[in-house]
Design a protein around this nucleic acid. Structure first.
Lengths: 95, 95
DNA sequence: TTCCTATTTGGCAAAATATGCAAATATGTC
DNA sequence: GACATATTTGCATATTTTGCCAAATAGGAA
């Protein structure tokens, strides 16, 4: 029962969200579409790192991308994931 | 901005949930209180592993525990985390 | 073609996570 | 005290994740 595909599937998505930078990216994409280089400026890490974070989110089905000339624009697919922020805000973790 | 404590905090909680066994545990605790040995029977891994999963969830503030004699009973603190399941169910990941 | 900008990918090292076994701890019973 | 049951912790190992650099790829402009 613990290896129920339901939990495997959900943990893939939760894992994709379980990183400060990726949560920040989701928050940004909730406002508007961003290209990689704009996100890189906001985040401040190497652009290859940003690209990999985006790949993780896209692979989990949380965002989509479209290519315009030599830029790639990313969009949030499931704004409902942000509702979760309100729930988390109520939790007092010990960290 | 990416190391905003808000995102650090939220990622701790997401990370705690980002494991099939721990999602299963949260689902079980949504019904009723469980002690470690009962959870161990349902999950099937070593009891020390179950204990460690519970410690992760507790540390994130998702569950609480109370000791009765030589047993420890665990409770779900934030049933709202389960609402998230409905959101995730709409997402098609590539895994 | 050459050059330029934007993005992704390969490789690698460091850090974090997962898990089982054995040992330690806690609580109750005999 | 000795013993039994429930749980946690120490340790070792295996796996996964992260993040940078350099190289590869893609598209447009000169």
């Amino acid at each position: 029962m613990k290896d129920n595909p339901k939990y495997q599937y959900m943990s893939t998505i939760m894992k994709a969200m379980a990183h400060p930078t990726r949560l920040f990216i989701l928050d940004l994409l909730a406002e508007k579409e961003y290209c990689v280089c704009e996100l890189q400026k906001k985040i401040g890490t190497d652009i290859s790192t940003v690209s990999r974070h985006l790949a993780v989110l896209k692979n989990a089905g949380l965002i989509s991308s479209r290519k315009v000339n030599n830029q790639v624009w990313y969009n949030l697919l499931c704004p409902c994931v942000l509702d979760f922020y309100n729930c988390l805000a109520k939790i007092k973790s010990k960290n």
